Simulated assay, not measured.
Amino acid sequence: MGLTAQSVSRFFSFRKKKQKDWAFPEELCRRFTLAEISAATQCFDQTLCIGKSAFGTVYKGRIKVDGDEDRKDVAIQRISGGSERRMREFRAEVQLLCQLRHPNLISLIGFCQENGERITVYDYMPNGTLSDYLLDPSNTKNKDPFPLTWKQKLKICIGVARSVHYLHAGVKHAVIHRDVKCFNVLLDQNLVPKLSSFGLSKMGPPALSNALIKMNSNLTGTFGYVDPEYLDSGNVTEKSDVYSFGVVLLEVLCAKSILILSNERPGSGAIFPDLIDPFLKGKVAPDCLKKFMNITVRCLRRTGAERPTMGEVQVELECALELQESADAVKQLKELGTSASTSLAPPLPAYDMEDYTYENISFSEINETFCILVRFI
């Protein structure tokens, strides 16, 4: 923690330097040559392309890291565009990520800045993005052609919440991500989530547990995820990330992007529970579903003051997982016709258990929140 706090603190002195004097903590980040990057990507062979975004093209490559003889699978992002803004975003991400360490943040291995190229190198995430699983469960990048289970989704949401909470409160200077979305959540071989894409991140003054960091900022972010209060005032806060995370929770519950949901809503008149991912209906325990919807609603409230902190969101999601696991255990025992003390039979898979019912759940609050949300999209 001490090293990380000191390193992040140094970020401010780096930002004050002129572009030509750009500094970075060499002991924490490796600078690759363009020749190394070209060899790793076979001269940016398009068959190795694994993704594209507004920031650039990502390739799967193999490169020697930290003196190892064997080459390691990595993700290599080639930044597109030569604008001053792109340069600032590239440098901001390199300077920030090479100083932060958290199990749910993407690990930056190094970078390359040579002959007009700006390239970042990360750990390779074999399971792609959370968007891949939510919007295209048969995507060939995924090992398993089946959709994520509810408990897998909950654990992913908890991991992302932990990473954002760390950014807000776990380092000396709070970091506001400003682009929390499903596309920026990468999944490793064990489906552990890694938050990525820090080019738009803002550093604040020293983090204070009870102080809201508020900074004036040029409007930026992803349409549909941007905090409406930020749109109105131009002031970005930690609660802007909370709002964006609330949209992520909504997409996880429905397995559709917020833009698709907003387009469907006016014409079809669809409301909850009809909007819930059909693969999840009946698989989510009622108490867990109520807890999850409550968290989502609170994250999506109109003003930041009404929203919880990411620390509170993390705790509530962990509680939701406990409620699901407890309900599943009770249901399994009932369906096996035995008690916990005498049963030697293995637990039933979730998809073999009878469906949960939601007759006693009111969906009015989340429907009202959803109707307000789509007005801003």
Rank of each mutant, 00 (worst) to 15 (best):
D227K: 00
Y356F: 15
Q189T: 11
A174Q: 08
K256Q: 09
F272W: 00
V330M: 12
A5N: 15
P206K: 03
L253M: 06
A350T: 14
C49S: 14
R118E: 15
L373K: 01
Q46S: 10
L167C: 14
F245N: 05
G128Q: 04
I63P: 06
I176F: 02
F90S: 08
D45R: 02
A35L: 07
G337A: 02
F292S: 13
N190L: 12
S233R: 06
R30D: 14
Q6G: 12
I79Y: 08
H173T: 04
A23I: 00
P206E: 15
A169H: 11
R15H: 12
P193A: 07
P286W: 13
S53H: 12
G246E: 03
A40E: 05
S343R: 09
K290P: 03
K17S: 11
T296R: 04
F198L: 05
A92S: 14
V164Q: 05
N104I: 06
I276R: 01
E316W: 03
I213K: 04
C319H: 07
A40D: 03
Y230D: 14
I295K: 02
S197R: 09
L154P: 02
I79K: 00
G204I: 07
L3I: 13
C371V: 15
A255W: 08
E335Q: 15
G269T: 07
M353T: 01
I76T: 04
G110F: 11
L336I: 01
F44D: 05
F279Q: 13
E322A: 09
L105Q: 10
P273I: 07
C49I: 13
L135H: 14
D188Y: 08
D355M: 03
D188K: 03
A285S: 14
G234Q: 09
P273E: 13
R178T: 01
L289G: 05
S13K: 14
M203W: 01
D123M: 06
A54F: 05
C254M: 12
T120A: 01
S339K: 05
S326C: 11
N115K: 11
G304K: 02
T149N: 07
Y166C: 05
M125C: 13
L195S: 10
L373I: 10
I176K: 00
A207Y: 05
L333S: 01
L108M: 14
A350L: 13
E368S: 10
I119Y: 06
D136V: 06
